[in-house]
Amino acid sequence: MTQAAYFVVIGLGVGSVYALSGLGIVTLFAGSGLANFAQGDFMVLGALVAVNVVGAGFGYLPALATAVVVVAAAGLVLGGLFTLPMRHRRVDVDVVIIGTLGVATTMTTLSGIWFGRQPQRLDSPLAGAFIPIGDLQVPAHYALLLAGAALVFGAVHWFHRHTDVGLQLRAVASSVPAARDAGVRVGRMLVVAWTIAALVGGVAGVLVASVVPIAPEAALPLGVNGFAAAIIGGLASPAGAVVGGLLIGVAEALAGGYLNDTLRQAVAPVVLLAVLILRPGGLLGRTRTVRVA
C-alpha cells in the first residue's frame, strides 16, 4: 500500500509541474483568448535567471524576485508586440498560434546562447529534507512544489475574482466587443494579461527548477505538458488547469510504477485526446468560444 501512496505523492509533485505551466497558459487565454506555446520558455527563463542569481551568492528569495521581474518584463514586451496588430483588425487565431511558436524558437535559442545549454538545478530551501512514506521517502521540495502550485492558483484566482484589473481581464476574455462598449481599455488589458501570464511563468519556473533539470531545450515539452493540463480544464479555468495537471501527474506516476515507462510517456497524449474526444469543452470548462474581435 505504501508503494501506491508513494506513487500518488510523486505523481502530485510531478503533476504540479504540469499545473504550474497550465496556469500560465490559462491566465493568458482567460485574459486575451490567445494560446501561448512559449509558456515553457517563460518558465525556463525564470529558472535560469534564478540559478544565476543564486550562483552570484544571493539567497533563494532574491533569486525568485529577480526572476519574476525579468520574466514579467519579457511578458510586457511580448504583450505590446502581440497587441499591436489587434488594434486595427480582427486577428486570425490560427496565425497567432504560429506567432507564439516563433517566440518559443527565438527564446529557446537566446536562452541557450546567454545561459548555456547545460541543465541547471536550483536548490529550494527544503533541499535535502525528505518525507518518509513507509521505507520510501519523497524529497520535501515535491511538497513545496505542490504548495507553490496551490499558492499560485490561489493568487491567480484571487486576482481574477477580487481586483478591478482582474475584472476587466475577465470582461475582455468573455467578449471583446462587450468590454469595449463598457469602456474597458482592451489594448492595455491584453498587455496586462501577457505580463501576468509571464509573471506566473517566472514563479513556476523557479519552483519547478528544484525538481526538473532546467535546460533551454526543455521549454517546448514543458509548454506542451502545460497545454495538456490546461485543455483538460477547458483552457479557460485556472482550477481546471490545476486539476488537469495533477490528474496527468498521478496517472503518469501510477503507469510508470505499475506498467512500464513507455506507457508512462504515452499517458499525457492519451489522456489529452480522450478528454478532447469525450468532453470537447474540457472536464470543468463550459464550451465557450472566445472571440478576439
Binding site: L167, Q168, R170, A171, A173, S175, A182, G183
Partner: peptide, 20 residues
C-alpha cells in the same frame, strides 16, 4: 444587450463605475 454575460450583475456595474 451587450452586458458581459459571464460577469455578475454587480461586477457589470463595477465595470461601468470603473470606466466613469
Amino acid at each position: 444587450l451587450t452586458a458581459v454575460v459571464d460577469l455578475s450583475v454587480e461586477e457589470n456595474l463595477r465595470l461601468g463605475w470603473l470606466a466613469g
